[in-house]
Simulated assay, not measured.
Amino acid sequence: MNTPKIDNSVFKRLRFVLVETSSPGNIGAAARAIKTMGFGELVLVNPRFPDAVREEAAIAFASGAQDVLSGARVVATMEEALQDCNFAAAISARLREFSPPVVTPRAVAAQIASDAGLRAALVFGNERFGLPNELVQQCNVLINIPANPDYSSLNLAQAVQVLAYECRMAELGEGRQDSEIGFRGEMAGVAEIEGMFKHLEEALVAIEFLKPDSPKKLMPRLKRLFARTQLETEEVNILRGIARQILTPKQERKPKE
């Protein structure tokens, strides 16, 4: 009996996430950009119009990509949008002091295409305000499109098109990085990493390393540090185990075997 072949290409592992999009036309144009490059998964986080995918402008700008548009999921939070993802990339023209590592579209496309274990999301912000810092910090990397420094403003759908094109070309072979050194475990999911940070913050407060009334920039710095490591599930579990041990009263601790 022949075992059915599983399509594990980047076309099936990558989703496009639009956060608080204002214009239904931009949503439709983004759906078109996604479909032209062979992708199909679109998620909308709290769009301005709850029925945005049915708006006349969205349908008009989708121009034949109505299947992607009508299949788009509308969710209320970033956590829902990134469910089941273990890699997320924020796209922004504005660099941040405590952002994750900054990469180019081509570099991140090559990374996603060459690692079949990545279930990835590309996250785009509001047309006027972009992505807030707290959402950028939830992502593994920050993508900065190397545009004209004198006029670097891209329309939302144009930015989606650039990333979709780079990911398509990486999957088809250009810029692909297939070299691998040593063992690599399963990448930790975005929700797992966020849970680890909350647990770690609680532990740091307990040992008075972090002052909850004056946290300053410790947690953003730690997020930036760990974003560079591409945490695996087992590594997240180790860090949570350390936090759990810190939070457990000494008399209740069991020695490690």
Rank of each mutant, 00 (worst) to 15 (best):
R221K: 11
F39R: 10
E20N: 11
V17E: 09
R119H: 11
T3P: 09
V43N: 00
A121L: 08
E232Y: 02
M37T: 05
P220G: 08
F124C: 03
M78C: 04
L225I: 15
Q245S: 15
Q251A: 15
I193F: 10
E252I: 08
R253E: 10
D51N: 06
F98Q: 12
T77L: 13
E186K: 09
K256D: 15
D115V: 10
R32Q: 04
V108Y: 03
S9G: 15
V53T: 13
F87L: 02
E41D: 12
G185S: 07
F61N: 07
A121M: 08
P255K: 02
V43Y: 02
L14Q: 02
I193Y: 11
L163D: 05
I112W: 01
Q137H: 04
S22G: 03
N86D: 05
F226N: 04
E235C: 04
N2T: 10
L218R: 01
E20A: 09
M196H: 09
T36I: 05
A89G: 01
A88F: 00
I6D: 07
P4G: 01
I91V: 14
I207A: 11
E192K: 10
A170C: 07
A170H: 06
A29W: 02
R13V: 05
Q66K: 13
G195V: 07
L222M: 14
G40L: 15
E252D: 15
T36E: 01
K254M: 14
Q111A: 14
S114D: 05
F226T: 04
E180T: 13
F226P: 07
S92C: 07
M78P: 00
A191Y: 02
T21W: 06
